[in-house]
Design a binder for these strands. Structure first.
Length: 920
DNA sequence: TATGGAACGTA
DNA sequence: CGTACGTTCCATAG
């Protein structure tokens, strides 16, 4: 047995019979446990992948290839029509998984080989032969025993015993041990015995034992056949009767070893996978656990540090310790775009919970600048002259820079430096180009766009190592730190050089430079400002909701025979509701039956059980309690909450809010309003009391739909300024506006909003608790009256399918490759996203424009009032005393004139001492 | 300890 | 079988 760890041979090819192994994987793993949200089964893909990883780890190949069958006739089926006949239909769940495996192999940069007229095992045999001839080691992975004939000293077979985890290595000795013939003779034995799986009958009554005995006695198959007469008994008789079978079997099970393959051996070299593609695929397949294993395996096999490309060497750099050195660098390189990287430490994290300490934005401890072939690092931990020169450079509007995440830099600098001259922010550019990326981390962008690593094993020039033993270690640490920072700046510059032409080509340069980058600066101001919190009231609310939750819990337990189930555990609830109490089954979820509020209400109607009511009360109270607790934990030392706005999260162009999320504070219930009441107008450093001003766009998405669809009816509705839903209701129900009942109005309202989400008649019926027929009639009446809306929505999807993306009014794109998917669920989802993205995204464009306008006016008019929050269609300002009217005018004007539509943009404003008050 | 699902808040 | 998010908890995997 060859020791697989004995890696003295430079080349080792792993060649896999893809179809055979995919099938093994499929049957080894339960299909029902491996499916994506969209119903695509993935058990074969998963099994195949884990098998591949195991093989790579165990066998340490330098080359890998996978062969697949085609669905076309092969030499075998041509010769013998019944070949593989009688096999049961390929199961539905297997369908499509081969394609997925091929895609995964593509992303792994492992060649997949098919050849018209030939099956995978012929390809495998040819590759193994080429490898053998080249003097390489070979490992063949296949569940087909025919490959045993390939075994030599250097070519071994991995034949799965069961599943894909137990795959022992078969060498000549193992074959001889098991079948009592040599590998070369194995197909002769198989010809005699036959192969049920391939529908190749052999000699009835003859098994491997007798076959081996005969072969040994007469030397080989020809010998056995020539001496058939000499074999006595039933088995001899059978042999003579079925000689044709044997001849045919032998012809068919001989593997073709000299095919013309479309790839060379060299092309099977194991390479670094395409991480981007792989991430995307794994996202779609919902492979998360295996993802890291894939990367680890390849890293381990290939080494994490790939050979740096010729052009991938961090430029020489200077560590500046004088202003002169900074200025010299800028004098020489300041004329070109400089990559700038800010080394930021912290912020401190609140123990255990991984959220930053409220109000702590970290510190910039160093900054690096990178030109094409030169770099500079400046330590900023002390107030040196070099540090000052670096800060001045960053503030210089004439110095063109490309940065990464300007908002974080501004926040970490705080008041200690300002930033100007930013031409590009790689974070934001990447978002403009690919708004649905999973990660925008600098390292991910470098890997994805530059095919390089941010972090190399590179160490700076050894010449720097002083002989002074005491100082040497620290010296080299400092040098490494500077090197890493310069490399980051250099990568940012290179990213920018890739992104900028792509952004220009897309026509999104305005969007980037005049909207998103300036907005990042504005957002930093919002985050700095924060919103004042009435902490005392917040504490009272926490107690209140906590008491309510406790009371509801007690009542629920009482209604459950005093049994104390965890009301927060859907799993335990399922046991109580559907097993113990034997209630009717609700909607199915991935893990059982749903216990969401709709389901519980349904059950309450049917059973009237007191447990349900109290459970819902508990849910409500707990949710509120959690929200309040989250707010409490987020209050900073200045008694304010400083949320973080993420500018690169929502694929449509919206902002998102985190730590804490202030865009989902309850509003519809009384309790929600109580919570909004703790968001208050703060006090200025001068001690003056401020006020809050809120302004929101009314029905902005409907207005955008009216604008984009150019529907005359809808445009008229908005121009007349009357109640939109009443107007639409009058048209849909064909009555006078004053005769529209509140029921009609709410139906129409739900439908209008639903349209922008791709609501179906089924969905509408469920929401309004009406029949599907009624819902369908409602929709058709709507489209009769507002035909252009229907045309618009249809055209949006059509255009998106053609282009592969949707676009907002400001040219913000969202790519939707699933529009052409074979998977209906995926395709439908993509269509709904396509409907929604231009509408939601244009609304996001508009309020972002408004924010820039508001900020500009507040500054120009030198007001102390400031913007503090954005909630998608709402802006909140904190007003300094005496500025109320002026600020309100700015807000209204800037919001309503942010963009010119075919309908007016209506803005509702309100003022008050709290967010709740201001909204009324 | 990290990850995913369910649930639920907002626009 | 309505889009876009973030947070929380529990359960599971390791």
């Amino acid at each position: 047995m060859t020791d697989p760890s004995n890696d003295t041979t430079p080349h080792r090819l792993l060649v896999i019979d893809g179809h055979s192994m995919a099938f093994r994987a499929f049957y080894a793993l339960p299909a029902e446990n491996f499916a994506t949200a969209t119903g695509q089964h993935t058990n074969a893909v998963y099994g195949f992948l884990t098998m591949l990883l195991t093989m790579i780890r165990q066998q340490q190949p330098t080359h890998v290839a996978v062969a697949f069958d085609l669905d076309t006739p092969t030499r075998r089926s041509e010769e013998y029509a019944e070949y593989k006949a009688g096999r049961s239909e390929t199961p539905q769940e297997f369908y499509g998984q081969i394609d997925l495996i091929v895609k995964v192999m593509e992303a792994l940069r492992i060649p997949t080989i098919t050849l018209d007229g030939f099956e995978a095992d012929d390809i495998v045999a040819t590759l193994a032969t080429l490898s053998e001839d080249a003097g390489w080691e070979t490992r063949v992975v296949s569940g087909d025993r025919d490959v045993f004939q390939l075994i030599t000293d250097r070519t071994l077979v991995l034949y799965p015993k069961k599943g894909v985890s137990d795959i022992p290595l078969m060498d000549a000795a193992a074959v001889e041990e098991k079948y009592k013939v040599s590998p070369a003779q194995y197909p002769e034995l198989a010809a005699l015995v036959g192969e049920t799986a391939d529908n190749l009958p052999g000699i009835p009554g003859v098994g491997p034992g007798f076959a081996a005995k005969w072969l040994k006695e007469y030397g080989d198959l020809d010998g056995v056949l020539a001496n058939a007469d000499k074999i006595t008994g039933k088995k001899g008789e059978s042999l003579r009767e079925h000689m044709d079978n044997v001849h045919r079997n032998r012809r068919l099970n001989a593997l073709v070893r000299d095919l013309e393959l479309p790839v060379t051996l060299e092309a099977t070299t194991l390479e670094q996978p395409d991480r981007e593609q792989l991430e995307e695929l794994f996202d779609a397949l919902e492979f998360n656990r295996v993802r890291q294993r894939v990367f680890d395996t390849f890293d381990e096999r290939l080494g994490t540090t790939t050979e740096p490309a010729q052009d991938d060497v961090t430029p020489d750099f200077t560590v500046a310790d004088s202003a002169q050195q900074v200025n010299d660098f800028l004098a020489e390189h300041g004329g070109e775009l400089l990559g700038v990287y800010a080394e930021i430490t912290g912020p401190e994290m609140v123990a255990k919970r991984k959220i930053p300490v409220p109000g702590d934005y970290g510190t910039v401890t160093g900054v690096s600048f990178a030109a094409d072939d030169a770099g500079l690092f400046v330590d900023l931990t002390s107030d040196s002259a070099a540090a000052k020169a670096a800060r001045d450079a960053l503030a210089d509007p004439a110095l063109d820079t490309a940065v990464y995440d300007v908002k974080s830099i501004i926040k970490a600098f705080g008041s200690t430096a300002s930033i100007d001259g930013v031409q590009d922010d790689a974070l934001i550019s990447a978002y403009i180009l690919q708004p649905d990326r999973r990660s925008y981390e600098l390292s991910a962008l470098v890997e994805g766009y530059l095919n390089a690593n941010l972090d190399t094993g590179e160490t700076p020039a050894a010449g720097q190592q002083a002989l002074d033993l005491d100082g040497a270690e620290e010296e080299s640490k400092a040098q490494q730190r500077a090197h890493d920072a310069v490399r980051a700046a250099w990568m940012i510059r290179r990213l920018s050089q890739v992104f900028t032409p792509a952004v220009i080509e897309r026509g999104a340069q305005q969007l980037l430079q005049n909207l998103e980058i300036p907005l990042a600066v504005v957002l930093a101001e919002l985050e700095f400002a924060g919103v004042a919190i009435d902490e005392a009231r917040l504490g009272e609310l926490l107690q209140q909701f906590s008491d309510e939750a406790d009371a509801a819990q007690e009542s629920a337990w009482a209604a459950n025979d005093g049994e104390k189930v965890n009301l927060g555990s859907p799993k335990q609830l399922q046991v109580v509701l559907f097993e113990k109490m034997d209630m009717p089954k609700t909607r199915k979820t991935k893990t059982g039956y749903s216990t969401d509020v709709d389901s519980l209400n349904d059950l309450l109607e049917r059973t009237g059980h007191a447990f349900l009511q109290n459970l819902m009360l508990y849910r409500d109270a707990t949710k509120l309690k959690q929200t309040v607790q989250g707010l409490k934990d987020a209050v900073a030392e200045d008694h304010r909450i400083h949320t973080t706005f993420s500018q690169t999260t929502a694929a449509t162009g919206r902002l998102s809010s985190l730590n804490p999320n202030l865009q989902n504070i309850p509003v519809r219930t009384e309790a929600g309003r109580q919570i909004r009441d703790v968001f208050t107008a703060g006090t200025l450093p001068t001690g003056e009391q401020t006020q809050l001003l809120t302004a929101d766009y009314s029905q902005i998405e409907m207005r955008i739909m009216a604008h984009l669809s150019e529907d005359e009816g809808l445009i008229t509705a908005f121009k007349d300024g009357e109640d939109l839903h009443r107007f639409v209701g009058a048209n849909v129900f064909d009555v006078d506006p004053q005769d529209v009942t509140s029921e009609m109005r709410s139906k129409v309202k739900a439908m209008s909003y639903g349209l922008a989400y791709g609501l179906s008649s089924f969905g509408l019926s469920k929401q309004l608790r009406i029949s599907v027929d009624e819902a369908r009639e409602l929709m058709s009446a709507y489209f009769d009256r507002f035909g252009a809306v229907q045309t618009y929505l249809r055209d949006v999807v059509k255009q998106a399918r053609k282009d592969g993306f949707t676009e907002t009014m400001l040219g913000r794109r969202r790519y939707l490759p699933d529009l052409t998917s074979d998977n209906r669920q995926l395709r439908d989802m993509a269509e709904r996203a396509a409907l929604n993205a231009p509408i939601q995204g244009s609304a996001a464009d508009i309020i972002k424009l408004a924010m820039l306008g508001v900020q500009r006016e507040l500054t120009e008019q030198q007001l102390r009032s400031r913007m503090i929050l954005q909630i998608h269609d709402e802006l909140i300002l904190e007003l300094a005393p005496g500025e109320e009217e002026q600020a309100e005018r700015i807000l209204t004007e800037q919001m309503s004139s942010a963009i010119e539509l075919r309908v007016p943009l209506d803005v509702q404003v309100g003022r008050g001492r709290s967010w709740n008050d201001a909204a009324h």
